[in-house]
Design a protein around this nucleic acid. Structure first.
Lengths: 328, 328
DNA sequence: CTGTTAGCGCGTTCAA
DNA sequence: TTGAACGCGCTAACAG
């Protein structure tokens, strides 16, 4: 590996001049620039980003923290973040907290050791407070989620409004006994409750069940609900993967979707369109969330930060998993 | 941000001693170690990885290069790589070449600028030759794929044998007109051809169709096959996501699966179990591939590299998308 | 057991 | 337009 020193020797100039050529600083005589360029080529020289980063006190790396990259929802956001970051000369460091959601200290260590320039959270379950403290020196952005108790830059849809719309869709089809799946998601649970209340439907707490954010979690939660003898004609499942798992559980228990039970999901992942019945869901603009998250993050380090929170539009995608209510 | 200097001043020792305490070098009097530790705590000091990396000429970062993180196959491998890497003090830098498969130079630049210590490829479509050249100074590992024309460390199943088994499964069910989807995958195509030949089934080139590695790609390819009037009673789809897309295309064209056409996939992604009909497929041990890929990579930088290539077991998972051949 | 010294590779003053 | 010198934060060789 050639260094800037060797280049300078070969070109017969100082390292300062090589550095100037490298960074396109003006004030270099064309002929010497030419010589330097030739030396660089001859030695196949590539500037060391380590030396550069130390000098500039930056890493050009963002860390993306999420709960499970195998959830297509996160994967699609990450893909766009990475693409956008790369086009701005940044790299993405992945941190999948799937097995250790509480290990904030582990993440904090990466931040404080200046291994990264900032953080984009795709999951609000981590202890955001701890990160909020250092967000002045190390910008953080929340993508896909929103918290109201902290002044954290974020880009997301209006989760409560979206959940209201999802629930209203079921209500408008005549359903009144609506199961809500995934109580760990507070915003969407709130939307569900608001919608019921607005429609004058009494709230039955037993219809609020917990699940995790996986196919298997949705399957298990629905199995449990059926075993518990819960009576419902529709389900609002957060997220889509849980909905797909729940549909299989219904099918395995001879409950037809949507004839016997309607199911609506949340996220709008690609496979929702390919399962049978195709999943009705709230679709989020995942690419837009990813792109805007990175750009918001980047702006945070400039003189003119973008205004936040950023709200992006969602929309209800009607497919085949919801049908009008029928007496069973 | 406190530096090692400030810590040494506060503790009344030299920076070398602080460094010794930091790295748990033996030969530090317990009392001074105590003083240093207190100073570190008081200043909330965190060692700068940039300084450290420059000195040690390492980054403790691996780059994972893949074609599309939204493919659950890759996502699951990446998740395990990241988890394993982290447990060894390494971080994972993502490079999703989804929109620019040919940009080897872009990747090479990251490598040669010493921004990472090595590379794990999850896709063999990139120009591996270019990377092979630098693999001495910057180890590379291939995960999930295998190439025989280069001496590249890899961990994967035996793709050809697996493809033979998949095809044989269809043949053993009485199918003879078997569509193969995804000709860009040479190994599995080869297995398909070998299986046909062994069974004495004439090869019909028109039954080998191209697709990309997405739900939509599988859907489009199957639509095209039906439009072309191709006659077949079974399909071997690479990968699972394409198979799921293809199944929907069949369904949308009033072809029943598995009654009219049997479908077998390849990969064993989680959702394959949840679609209807549940997808019969070749299941790969994705977590094992991810873990071993990182450990192989790590060993490449030590004195005792693990032997390679590493072969991991696959297995045929019989579900509901394949049925015995019936005259239509 | 501890301190001094010398870089790792780079960007950036300050002079010339 | 260029070069000398310095320092970013850290570790390691050597000396004491």
């Amino acid at each position: 590996m050639a260094t800037i020193q060797e280049v300078s020797r070969l070109a017969g100039v100082s390292t300062a001049t090589v550095s100037r050529v490298l960074n396109n600083s003006r004030g270099v005589k064309p002929s010497t620039r030419e010589r330097v360029l030739r030396a660089i080529q001859e030695l196949d020289y590539h500037p060391s980003s380590m030396g550069r980063n130390l000098r500039l006190n930056q890493t050009c790396c963002v860390m993306v923290i999420l709960n499970d990259i195998t959830n297509p929802f996160f994967a699609r956001i990450v893909r766009t973040i990475e693409l956008t970051a790369r086009s701005h000369g940044y790299h993405v460091l992945l941190f999948d907290s799937v097995e250790s959601d509480c290990s904030a200290s582990e993440i904090l260590d990466v931040v404080t050791s200046r291994k990264i320039d900032g953080v984009i959270f795709l999951s609000s379950k981590s202890n955001l407070e701890e990160f909020y403290r250092i967000s002045k020196e190390c910008p953080i952005v929340l993508a896909g989620e929103y918290v109201d108790y902290l002044d954290i830059p974020s880009v997301s849809i209006d989760n409560i409004a979206a959940a209201i719309e999802a629930t209203n869709h079921l209500i408008s089809l005549g359903h009144r006994d609506i199961l809500y799946m995934n109580t760990s998601d507070k915003d969407r649970l709130r939307g569900y409750l608001i919608a019921l209340e607005l429609a004058g439907i009494p709230i039955r707490p037993e219809l609020q069940v917990e699940s995790d954010w996986t196919y298997a979690g949705g399957y298990a939660a629905m199995e449990q609900a059926l075993r518990d003898g819960l009576e419902f004609s529709a389900v609002f499942c957060v997220p889509d993967v849980a909905a797909i798992g729940a549909i299989k559980a219904l099918r395995d228990n001879q409950v037809r979707v949507p004839e016997d039970v309607s199911v609506i999901g949340f996220d709008g992942i690609e496979v929702a369109e390919y399962v049978d019945p195709a999943l009705t869901t709230i679709s989020q603009p995942l690419e837009e969330i990813g792109r805007q998250a990175f750009e918001l993050w980047l702006s945070l380090m400039s003189k003119n930060p973008l205004p936040y929170p950023i709200r992006v539009p969602y929309n209800l995608v009607r497919r085949d998993s919801c049908a009008p209510y029928r007496e069973r």
